[in-house]
């Protein structure tokens, strides 16, 4: 695209204040989430955008990949991120840029009334540039969202695998949520490391919070149990709900020699027995 912006920087220069006022009015009228963003903040963002936009178009032409557009892109990224955090939708975020079109084109028309060709060219170049900038905010918005999702996934992974010490030599691992290969790996590693750290001989894996047990989950469990056994610790699986017991039998899953108990209390008792801890009679 060979069109260069000749008039635009000049218009921005001359009518900056008026454009800013028009633009802010435009946004205040059209926004659906009234009061979600403070007017002062909006004014600040708009003024900054105008200033950087003017600099960028003066020096960098209409190609927003050029380094002259760096500060402008940064501003848009910040605006997009802060709006995303405030709960704006992607289209509302993009409107920040798109709403600038109307006041800008009005000015262009007034200025270039005598020269239709220049008006058309200038309008076309400006609209393309603004579209790109608007899409850029959407892209940044999307990226910010993805980062949030990835972070939450990691947090969930960490949160969902606590290993607690029940007694001297007894660990418990209450598992919550669906078990996939990724999670089982983390669970296995944390449990085994904790076994070494505490020198525990018995580990209770409680699966009360695991919604379904299929062959894959059973295999993961067996692997964890086998690894713990290799290190010299015994595992007890507890929290086998009636539905899970039925599934295990229907699927003909062989849990082998693993000790299983219906609830954590029974498993704890079995673990104490195994360690030879004397218990008070008549519980």
């Amino acid at each position: 695209m060979a069109v260069n912006l000749i008039h635009l920087p000049r218009i921005l220069e001359r009518h900056g204040e008026a454009l800013l006022a028009d633009w802010i009015r435009e946004q205040l009228q059209s926004r659906s989430r009234t009061g979600a963003i403070k007017e002062g903040e909006l004014r600040e963002q708009c003024a900054e955008f105008l200033r950087l936009f003017r600099e960028a178009t003066t020096k960098g032409g209409v190609d927003m990949t050029r380094p002259e557009y760096g500060p402008l892109r940064e501003l848009l990224a910040n605006v997009s991120a802060s709006r995303g955090a405030q709960g704006f939708s992607p289209s509302e975020t993009a409107k920040f840029v798109f709403s600038f079109k109307r006041p800008l084109f009005m000015r262009l028309r007034e200025e270039l009334m005598r020269d239709p060709v220049a008006l058309a060219d200038e309008t076309w170049a400006a609209t393309e540039l603004l579209d790109e900038l608007g899409l850029y905010t959407t892209e940044v918005y999307q990226k910010a969202r993805e980062a949030v999702i990835v972070r939450q996934q990691e947090e969930m992974l960490e949160l969902s695998t606590p290993v607690v010490k029940l007694w001297d030599g007894i660990l418990a691992l209450p598992m919550i949520g669906t078990l996939d290969s990724n999670r089982t790996q983390v669970v296995m590693e944390t449990l085994l490391e904790k076994i070494v750290e505490t020198g525990s001989e018995v580990a209770i894996i409680d699966i009360t919070g695991v919604p379904t047990v299929d062959t894959l989950v059973a295999q993961h469990l067996m692997k964890t149990v086998a690894a713990a056994r290799l290190m010299g610790a015994e595992c007890i699986i507890s929290g086998i709900r009636p539905a899970i017991a039925q599934t295990i039998v229907h699927l003909a899953i062989d849990l082998g020699t693993v000790v299983t108990k219906a609830n954590l209390a029974d498993a704890f008792k079995a673990a104490l027995d195994k360690l030879g801890v004397a218990q008070l009679p008549g519980r």
Binding site: E189, E193, I195, A227, A228, R229, L230, G232
Partner: peptide, 21 residues
């Protein structure tokens, strides 16, 4: 732990060997 995980992944559960911490 890493050795135990490796052995299990290799399918070697060493049945018949006793283990201790």
């Amino acid at each position: 732990p890493s050795v135990a995980i490796t052995l299990v992944e290799l399918g070697l559960t060493l049945h018949g060997i006793r283990t201790a911490l």
